[in-house]
Amino acid sequence: MKKADIILFSVFLLIGIIGITIYFITGKNAEYISVSVDGETIGVYSLNTDCEIPIRSGNGENVLLIQNSTARMILADCPNQDCVLHKEISQSNESIICLPHKVVVTVIKEPVEGDLDAVTY
């Protein structure tokens, strides 16, 4: 192994660890779940109210479950099921992505999001 290899490895590791530290420091006290389809936010939900949220997009259907202040995808009618296998999320900016349906579920701190059409609590 060459010296430059070790430097490259250390640089990536260092930047990554700094980033992760910042992520965890800023990631607390998140209370809302934002659901977006095709890059457009279609709804914001409180993490403290248990509920099931059906997400219907032009591409297919997903069902999101909010329970015990965490959110997870419980159903997706796509073949790869990656979002269903994803662990539950509760930290700020953590997200579950359903690529085939272009659905992104993200944990956010504040419910205000500019040009929102509808906000549900």
């Binding site: 490895f9 990536f12 590791l13 930047i15 990554g16 660890i17 700094i18 980033g19 992760i20 910042i22 992520y23 977006s36 095709d38 890059g39 900016n93 953590e94 997200s95 992505i97 690529l99 272009k102 659905v103 992104v104 993200t106």
Partner: peptide, 20 residues
């Protein structure tokens, strides 16, 4: 594909995983 910029938050994790 998703047009959701929040995914950038994955970058530090991906850097560490990629390097390892």
């Amino acid at each position: 594909i998703t047009q959701v910029p929040v995914l950038w938050y994955y970058l530090p994790f991906l850097l560490v995983i990629g390097a390892l």
